Simulated scan of single mutants.
Amino acid sequence: MTQTVEPGDLIQLSSPLPRQLAIVMRQQLPSLAKEVIEEIRRAIPAYGRPIKGPYVQALQIGVERALDQFVEQIASPGAPSDRYKETCRRLGRFEAQEGRTLDNLQAAFRIGAQVAWRRVMKTGPELQLSSTVMAQLAASLFAFIDELASLALEGYLDALPSEELEEHRRRLLQLLLRTPAASRRAVAELAQIAEWEVPDEVTLVAVPAGSRVVRASLDQDLLADLTGDEPHLLVPGRVNEDRLRMLAEALPEGRVVTGLSVAPVHAADSLRWARQTLPLVEQGVLSDGPVTRCEDHLITLWLLSDPAMVDQLARRHLAGVSRLNSVQRDRLLATLHTWLTTRGTAAEIAEELDVHPQTVRYRMRKLEGTLGDRLADPDARFAIEVVLRAMWLRERGAGR
């Protein structure tokens, strides 16, 4: 069992080790650091990401500096340790900013100690180290691991936001999303307590449930509720290119949707539109990349906002066509859609569909006989075009 130590107690828990031991150990550091990192990445999924990622780079730097410091303390017990201590605290702060607990980092410390001790057990007899020196080395090593954990915890706690301030901001976000809208006075009073300036416009962001969030990448002026079944963010103002990059970095594994930019009193509408759009992204109807903006897809959102209504419109305006077999129906609807959107000649429509003009003329006569006077009625034509567009979008989402 290891002892709990305070930062700065490293090595002094045991008798001084032979300083010449540091010369031999320093030769082992490059290969030992590589072995420690490989074992940690293999055992802890969070550290198994691409080696160029900030999470793994922070781990690599931490391991190298920790091992170097351990050997330096043996060579010169009074050597400065400020740089190493700040690295440990930074690792703890990084975990807090990423929105994680210290479990992974503490597990990494334990794995590092195990790998290092296996190396000691292998090389100790080769170097003819006495049992006394081996015992001292073991005590120093595990005291060192305790100090790593203590320093990381210190940095972790320093990086955690004030729980009271976070609670005020969560309450403020809930207040802004209340329906009917809360009074401006109530919002202003709570915003003052939450140390948040109420902007002229806000943009709500819908986040897929279970998304990993890199909290360190989130701008400090955002309001967030990422713990529920429908996580979301509030961005003050419009989502410009800088905000888009920020969202992509903060939510690297999730496809998020930004609602429309609205006055704070309409924040609930912005979130509702974003949430309505999120399933369309997940189904493949929309595929804009890591961040989808509602404002780029308003017609699609409107067309697919009420699928049952689209079905009713289809029954009323396309009843005759729906009775045909699937091949005839698809060909006629494709011709009808092209005619409605281009209003071209038979030759132009034939070129668009890659068929003979006579085929287009035949299909149009078939459509006129099936749909009757609807093609001559502007309102009916508009309804049919809307239905066809909605049907095409739904089939796109279904992969057809």
Rank of each mutant, 00 (worst) to 15 (best):
I11T: 10
L304W: 03
W117N: 08
V207N: 14
A380H: 05
R245S: 13
A43S: 07
A268I: 07
G344D: 10
P264D: 09
F382E: 11
E64Q: 11
H232G: 01
F382I: 09
K52Y: 09
I44W: 10
R243V: 15
V265P: 04
A113N: 02
P307G: 13
R49T: 14
T342H: 12
I37G: 07
E195A: 13
A186V: 07
E295T: 09
P30G: 07
L59A: 05
D306Q: 13
I145V: 15
R316F: 15
L137T: 12
L367K: 01
E295D: 14
E64H: 06
A113P: 01
G320Q: 15
T341N: 11
L175S: 00
A191C: 05
W392I: 04
S217G: 03
S130E: 04
L333A: 01
L375H: 06
S211I: 04
L102F: 09
E189T: 14
F70H: 06
V63T: 02
L226W: 06
M391K: 10
V257T: 06
R65P: 00
Q192W: 06
K85D: 15
G78P: 01
F142K: 03
E167M: 12
R329M: 12
V291S: 01
S76V: 11
A96T: 01
A224E: 14
D242T: 12
Q106S: 10
V207H: 11
I40F: 01
D296H: 03
L10Q: 14
R343C: 08
S131P: 05
Q27T: 14
L393I: 00
S15A: 14
R19V: 03
V265A: 15
M121V: 14
L375S: 07
C88T: 00
V213D: 08
R394S: 10
L29R: 02
K34L: 10
L332V: 10
G254M: 09
L222Y: 10
V355K: 03
L233V: 03
R49W: 03
F109P: 04
R185Y: 04
E164A: 15
D354M: 09
R323A: 15
F382R: 13
D219V: 05
Q114S: 12
S217M: 10
E282I: 02
D269L: 13
M1W: 11
A66V: 02
D269T: 13
D311M: 00
V355A: 08
L165N: 01
L29Y: 00
L222A: 06
G99C: 05
L176C: 08
R83A: 15
W339D: 08
V24Q: 15
E6S: 15
R19Q: 15
W196V: 07
L172S: 01
L333H: 07
L157N: 14
L298F: 00
